[in-house]
Amino acid sequence: MNIANIVLCGLGGQGILFMTRVLAMAAMDKGLNVMGAETHGMAQRGGSVISHLRLGEVRGSLVQTGTAHLLLALEENEGYRNIPFLAKNGKMFVNTNSLHFPRQEVRAFLDKREILYRAVSAGAIALKLGAPRSPNLALLGFFSALNEEPLSHAELRQTVDKISPKKFKGINLKVFEAGYDKGKAG
């Protein structure tokens, strides 16, 4: 693998920073170089939030438009907003309850670019397990069921286990695994 460009997005307070940390730590433990960019400050108060993560030999922390291999969106509209980052053949995983994902106009575009897209109600999974603030882990688990690259399910699981604060370790893993099961179930 050369460089992997990942964009994570959603709304402030949805746990994007934690999701980014899991991916970044897992990559470092695998021996990859990690460079990323985060949103702090004013926008964290419920505004559009975006994290960039680049694995491999790079200097800059921001992903160039048209070059992201992976887009993880905790909110549907934020996912659409960040489509310009996706490369041809990229992949998009979105947390949404909508049965109509993706919107028609978007579907045509994604198909044309051969971008793979999958939706999961990560919010509902987390809420059902009593962790309404953890759709991030459900989405990550879901993603890990369908991808080995750049990081595998086992590698991500280990990192969730390692970096979750003690108090939340059990529930975090449970939500992560529930997302994984959902992905495996198709």
Partner: peptide, 12 residues
């Protein structure tokens, strides 16, 4: 494409 979607602006 994104412009035509008229996505809600999420202000903080």
């Amino acid at each position: 494409l994104v412009e035509t979607l008229e996505l809600p602006v999420r202000r903080p």
